[in-house]
Simulated assay, not measured.
Amino acid sequence: MSSSRPAEPRVAGRTAHLRLADPEGRWRSVRLWQEVGLPGSRLDLAPADGGWELALDLPADVDRVEYLFVATGPDGGTEHLLDPANPRRVGGAFGDHSVLELPGYAPPPWLGVDAPEGTREPLAAGGVDGQLWASAGLAGDAPAPLVVAHDGPEYDDLAALTRCLAGLGRPVRAALLAPGPRDERYSADPAYADLLAGEVLPALRARVPVTGVLGLGASLGGLAWLHAQRRHPGVADALLLQSATFFHRRLDPQEAGFARFGRIARFVEEVLAARTAPRPVPTVLTCGRREENLANNRAVAQALARQGYGARLVEVADVHNYTAWRDALQPHLGALVARVARAAP
């Protein structure tokens, strides 16, 4: 293998062959960063022919793997590096990653469908900023479903949310809410739930006619939507919760250092213990099969189903990232938008 020209990563079956060229010997060691739960003992690259190499057997329950090289220099300092040999890269909440797409993976078909972009306007309500998007041709005074997305600008940039909505073939609007102080607001915060129900949604309903509201959120944003709906049952007519952060004391002790772990865990325990709910709404949850959140999502989905939400959990072949959430939007987003199109205002 030539040390002067990087070799693209090769995937044979479920085995990935990775190489990082290092002809000048800059690095003392190189390790793979990934989030699909591979044992740490399998992540060190071995020195080989002016570089570093790793043959990695990948789990059967993922279709794609995002990764970085963590290179350690002679002084002990580390750098997180994209794979210079891999042209496939994907954006994420914490920057770009290199990505391996395994046999059988395909992006969602709707990404290849041309649809009018729609319109956008600035949005500010109750101290929450964002954008109000509407499908092309939707008159300002025409009633339509409203998707209210936590982390809305990132959902749009990294998961193509409005592109997906534009392809639904029905009139729809989306309020893309910026998080502000995310870890506080989205961690089962009563003040934020009150703000969402008492100021943000009324301001949106005063601005445009709404047939019904679909609450959309991922990670802490999904948790925040369920918390708001339990505290204010009329705030949403359906929920789509992706990899929601339903921290539980027994299932998630590794997260105990998060500043609002206790508040989240108390709320989740209340949900799991409840026998009924004041106003259950149609709910779909999605979660990666190798996520740490999978066990707590299974528990919450079962509880919501018992309480009349008609909830179901869709487990996907990915982990906790925006591409996974993008790939899992359909058909659930379209089906729930259709439900709230028929909801009473």
Rank of each mutant, 00 (worst) to 15 (best):
V70C: 08
Q330H: 12
A299C: 09
V65N: 11
L111P: 03
L20G: 07
W52R: 06
A125Q: 04
G37K: 11
W52T: 06
A218K: 01
I264A: 10
C164M: 11
A7Y: 00
R182T: 07
H320N: 13
Q254V: 12
G104Q: 09
W110M: 03
D157G: 07
A142R: 13
L241A: 04
T323A: 15
D129M: 01
A178Y: 05
R230Y: 06
L58N: 10
V65H: 05
R19H: 05
C164D: 06
G198S: 09
A301K: 01
S98K: 08
A317V: 03
A305Q: 14
V337S: 13
W27I: 07
L81I: 10
G40K: 00
A303P: 01
L43I: 09
A160C: 12
D327N: 15
N321A: 11
P87D: 05
Q242V: 03
C164R: 08
C164T: 08
H97Q: 14
C164V: 09
L223T: 01
P171Q: 06
W52M: 05
A124D: 15
A124H: 13
L201N: 05
D44W: 06
R289F: 03
V284I: 10
L176E: 09
G76P: 02
Y186F: 15
G180K: 03
E101K: 07
A48I: 00
N321I: 00
A344M: 06
P9D: 06
T276F: 03
R298F: 04
G308M: 13
D157W: 08
G257M: 12
E269F: 10
A159D: 12
T323C: 03
L220D: 04
R230N: 02
G212S: 04
A335K: 14
I264K: 11
A197H: 11
A193W: 08
V90L: 15
L161R: 02
A166C: 06
G92V: 00
G77A: 15
E101L: 14
D49C: 00
R207E: 15
R14L: 04
A188Q: 12
L111E: 14
Y155N: 14
G126Q: 03
M1G: 14
N293H: 15
L226V: 08
N321Q: 13
A265F: 12
G25K: 01
V172L: 02
P153E: 14
W27Y: 14
A46P: 00
A311R: 08
G51W: 04
D252I: 05
D141W: 00
G51T: 03
E269L: 09
G37D: 12
A193C: 06
R207I: 10
A341W: 09
H227N: 12
G40L: 12
L100E: 04
H150Y: 09
L285T: 03
R14N: 02
G104P: 01
T276Q: 13
L216E: 12
P145M: 11
H227K: 09
L220M: 15
R279L: 13
E35K: 11
L20M: 09
